[in-house]
Design a protein around this nucleic acid. Structure first.
Lengths: 201, 201
DNA sequence: GTCTATACACCGATAGAC
DNA sequence: GTCTATCGGTGTATAGAC
């Protein structure tokens, strides 16, 4: 077996993806603190003990989901056409994050749990990807600033933190629950509110 | 003792306020799920069992803190001068919420815990105050809309939910932690970003 | 009402058979 | 590597003495 993975290894990979999918769903549904390893085991359909053969702790498990999300986000940035302005790209990042959440995905920011946040700061794999994304966003903000497309009233760091924060904004769930707007309308309303503001222009 | 409260009753009230202050602090620090009754008892300086003579459960205890916050917010609205426009009043509500958080207060929205959110929906005292605040905000939004001060791109419900959500926006903590801005600058940056938007006008 | 002590349940992680 | 069973720890809530 010189090329590719053995059947066993493939099966292992598939199960691991299934675990991550389940955690992704449960994290967005219940948050880190309320998600239990029993929940995960039940949703995947394996015994709780088996999870620990894949991930050595709950923190590592949740961290792997967020790392995968960061990888997807970076890939998404890479795939954007060069024709778009930097400001447009920033808008698209937000748009994609909101769509991801409306499809039941975990938000980029685990705003829920302080203990989880601290564990992420000790997760080198996560940190590496987070820094790469941070760097990309900073470059885009600098470029958009040069183009004169960003408000002079709002500092660069405020813009970046705001983009992160919108990805876990509870407004998404409120609007979803009110039932007056479609998913697409929710995304566009929040993008308009974030970049255009609440006040009349 | 025809007027006022007896000494015993006064002491009881004072202790109850002390408990609520401690919970207010702990909730904003650790969130609902991670805050334990032991934490509360330690911070107040009473035995854990004694807490249950004041509040019959952790949910009731946390609910009382949020109800008190809603009362304060309503009082704050009542105290606003009639000279201000409706749009200015909305801005001031946001400003006060952010200041409150920067002083270590709980956010209006317990975005952290789903179980706590559900318990609030069964807390009649909380619900009553929440609906009164909701009504006041709706009136202000309607008035500001009449005045032509709000963006036509953003629906009324999006505006109201956005205001609620900003009160628990993690951007506050990010900016605080980055250390580049004073508390006042953080408030003004977020108010500007929320009402003015990120894009150049 | 306040304390100490404890009941009861849940959860993260591990042990050991297969 | 997956299962069942269980340990150790922690958290809410209660019991009972004072």
């Amino acid at each position: 077996m010189a090329f590719g993975l053995s059947f066993k290894q493939q099966q292992f990979e598939v199960r691991e993806e299934a675990i991550l999918d389940a955690v992704n769903h449960l994290l967005s549904e219940k948050g880190y603190d309320l998600m239990t390893m029993d929940d995960v085991a039940d949703e995947v359909g394996v015994a709780k003990g088996s999870l620990y053969k894949h991930f050595s702790s709950k923190e590592k498990l949740a961290g792997a989901v967020l790392t995968r999300l960061l990888r997807e986000t970076l890939a998404r940035l890479d795939a954007m056409t060069a024709e778009w302005t930097a400001a447009r790209k920033l808008e698209e990042v937000l748009r994609w994050s909101l769509q991801h959440r409306l499809r039941g995905g975990v938000p980029h920011l685990p705003s829920t749990s302080r203990s989880f946040q601290r564990s992420l700061m000790r997760n080198l794999d996560y940190l590496g990807h987070a820094m790469r994304l941070q760097k990309r966003l900073k470059e885009l903000v600098a470029k958009a600033r040069e183009d004169g497309e960003l408000s002079a009233q709002v500092a660069d760091e405020v813009i970046i933190f705001t983009l992160y924060s919108r990805s876990c904004d509870p407004t998404v769930e409120f609007l979803k629950q009110s039932g007056n707007l479609s998913d697409e309308q929710i995304v566009e309303a929040m993008v308009a509110a974030t970049f255009g503001g609440l006040s009349k222009r």
